[in-house]
Design a protein around this nucleic acid. Sequence first.
DNA 1: GATGAATGAGGCTTCATTCAT
DNA 2: GATGAATGAAGCCTCATTCAT
Lengths: 198, 198, 198, 198
Amino acid sequence: MPKVGFEPIRKKQLIEATLLSIGEHGLQGTTINTISRFSGMSSGIISHYFGGKQGLIEATVRYLLDQLKATLLQLLSQADTSPQQRLMMIVEANFTNIQQSDAATRTWLSFWAQAMHDPELAKLQRVNSQRLLSNLRYSYKRLMPYDKAVDASKMTAAMIDGFWLRSALSDSSMVDFEESELLCKHFINTLILQYGDL
Amino acid sequence: MPKVGFEPIRKKQLIEATLLSIGEHGLQGTTINTISRFSGMSSGIISHYFGGKQGLIEATVRYLLDQLKATLLQLLSQADTSPQQRLMMIVEANFTNIQQSDAATRTWLSFWAQAMHDPELAKLQRVNSQRLLSNLRYSYKRLMPYDKAVDASKMTAAMIDGFWLRSALSDSSMVDFEESELLCKHFINTLILQYGDL
Amino acid sequence: MPKVGFEPIRKKQLIEATLLSIGEHGLQGTTINTISRFSGMSSGIISHYFGGKQGLIEATVRYLLDQLKATLLQLLSQADTSPQQRLMMIVEANFTNIQQSDAATRTWLSFWAQAMHDPELAKLQRVNSQRLLSNLRYSYKRLMPYDKAVDASKMTAAMIDGFWLRSALSDSSMVDFEESELLCKHFINTLILQYGDL
Amino acid sequence: MPKVGFEPIRKKQLIEATLLSIGEHGLQGTTINTISRFSGMSSGIISHYFGGKQGLIEATVRYLLDQLKATLLQLLSQADTSPQQRLMMIVEANFTNIQQSDAATRTWLSFWAQAMHDPELAKLQRVNSQRLLSNLRYSYKRLMPYDKAVDASKMTAAMIDGFWLRSALSDSSMVDFEESELLCKHFINTLILQYGDL
DNA sequence: GATGAATGAGGCTTCATTCAT
DNA sequence: GATGAATGAAGCCTCATTCAT
């Protein structure tokens, strides 16, 4: 009987423990030991599976990016979605992700700050940033002239990221996610009304 | 001959060195030693003037906040500014600040990430965040109904912060500050056109 | 094969190294590094096992106190000891302890000096000081009226501590432990002769 | 007009400040800065007058020793003192010194602990220790045979030091100085009664 | 003479990594 | 595969000393 690969299970447990630790202690306050405590495993296993702390951090970012991607794909997979509906879904996917876990939200910011001085994280960040932009542009292009669509996607991406940033930095109780989501959607509709006669 | 107070001079030198260090190594990579190397002074002087690394970090944040505030005050001090002109100036002040120094821009993000787990920085962040919001609201209220003004200021603040965030995370060469600034201004004008019949 | 707990072994090694270091360099001159050099281990191990230097110092005091207690218990455990014999044994236990190790003797004084400004050490010192007093009183009470016994134990404790202090402060070669011990015993016998008709 | 020597005045002020600092912070907790704060003078002056911290510490010990010596000389200078009266006075001088200042008492212990690893302090300690012994012996010899006098002075010195040590280590409120002094005197009288038929 | 700003060595602690079991 | 004891580099802070004024 082949030993089932414990590896993917262990890896996922360690990534989840990393998210818990960063949510509680911040990225700076997260050490090999806090992670191993959250995971219930030994500290040595981290080097064993990820080659070191840095490797685990990067794997954790990839994990979050994949989740975001999956959320979006799931929403967009529904048949017969108009470009306008798709834009709403993109907004929803981003805000759903924010609301899912306060810890994860705060974690993103830690990662991006770190990304400024870490090429590997920077690469991941760039991919993520571009994906939002191109997703938006893809739909906008179906609703308005190209140059308007380019500007619209830039403004929309900025607004989504801005609301996200402000929520990450505020007491979670102080932010009204639903309102932020509505304002974003409202903005998109305004843009479509304004330029959307194609 | 008045004995010039060396204290403010030294403090400013150390704060500038801190900005240089964070710009180059990031907040995490910035140590007592990197700062003292940039400042050309000894490591002990930091504790002497700021009571420790933490004190210097906080002083540096206050320094940046004061700069931003001063930039804005200077712009707004001009007589006969219409609400619309003031809104443009708020945008300009924020983007001027961003462009002034790549190091400073990147530094902000480091600070805000740290603020999530540092009450003192969090307080400063909150003040800064609220100031932008209330400045915007103050002018919007003169142009449109109150509830519209509230929403407009939230969206505008988010867009400004979003563009700022995206610029901090990108290679400086890749971001077109002027375009971002123009898009923000365009957005504001759109809002005014839309709701601004008061 | 039972996994032998290395913890108690390492802890004892570190405590012994601490005694050696204090004996040679004094408490002030004892650092994490002198201790780790004496123990042949790394400096990090101290925080690992004792949480820090302070913890190791306190554990070392407790170790010495336990040794003194054990020496006394062993002597007093012998059956059929008269109160007078017990008093002699108390004296012997204290002087045995002194003679055992020059380093330990000197160490005590360092500890007590530190105890004046360290609540945890002060607590240990108070326990030790009271124990000698109450041990003496317990036996004296069987030989003389209560108020005489109280005074006798105070004087005896003072004399023992005084001889101990003087020996700690002298070149070890200059002090005649046996003579000090004899003088203490002689003093006790005198007291018993004087008041001991109960 | 010759400038009056400020030197002795400054020196005394610094020594007094040293005693205050050690009383409050302990010898370990006493730094150049705590002393200069207590003295109201600059930190640099210490090196100027005493060559360094070590020099000031030693001067402070000499100051205390001189005070003790002076107290004793003053008491003994009275004409027509019998040997027995002189012994009482020696006890009184020692306990007067203790009671004078809680800070000074605690200071002594710090010094003696340090003396174990500081040749200069050790020398001073030895002188002080021998002086008490020889003062006692001088008087005892007039009251009893030489060998008895030698033993008597050793025991008396030990008892005085022992009570002093116990008082230094206790909460000042817990120690009854008067009782300790009486017990010492009582002990001396007993010795004289016992052997004093010369 | 007197100051106190500035230095920098050295202390304690933290923590990612290694490796014998 | 998995552990966690042990290492030691590096960080921050303290503080005696120096020296220009």
